[in-house]
């Protein structure tokens, strides 16, 4: 619609300039998430919460994603990485989602 320009008062009334402007601006800025406990050693936003500070956006269940985290060293302070700290961490379970009870807590 950018090539059309209202030239009289009736046309100006039906023209939707605000919508066009709004679409070109992108989404409105979000307010800050509600994050508990700040940045302490036990808290790492994103592991515990999603971008809104809640749990609705987390990967579900967490066990489904553990292999990926482990193999890709994706969360090196939260999940043992296969490069260094625990190469055989998932050795006892073929599928974390089924065998998650066989996963050990690692003390690096």
């Amino acid at each position: 619609m950018k090539h059309l320009k209202p030239i009289n008062s009736k046309a100006r009334k039906i023209a939707p300039p605000d919508d066009v402007v709004a679409l070109s601006q992108g989404p409105a800025p979000q307010s800050g998430p509600h994050i508990p406990l700040g940045c302490t050693f036990i808290f790492s936003p994103g592991w515990e919460t999603d971008s809104s500070g809640g749990t609705a956006g987390l990967c579900t269940p967490v066990e489904r994603d553990l292999f990926d985290c482990h193999n890709g060293c994706f969360w090196p302070a939260q999940v043992p990485d296969q490069l260094n700290h625990a190469p055989d961490w998932t050795g006892k379970c073929a599928s974390a989602q089924k065998d998650w009870r066989k996963i050990d807590l690692i003390f690096p």
Binding site: P36, E48, T49, G53, T55, L66, A77, F107
Partner: peptide, 14 residues
């Protein structure tokens, strides 16, 4: 107060 109940940590830096 808000309470977040979330997933475990799989490593313990202690």
């Amino acid at each position: 107060a808000h309470l977040l109940v979330t997933v475990p940590l799989y490593m313990r830096w202690d």
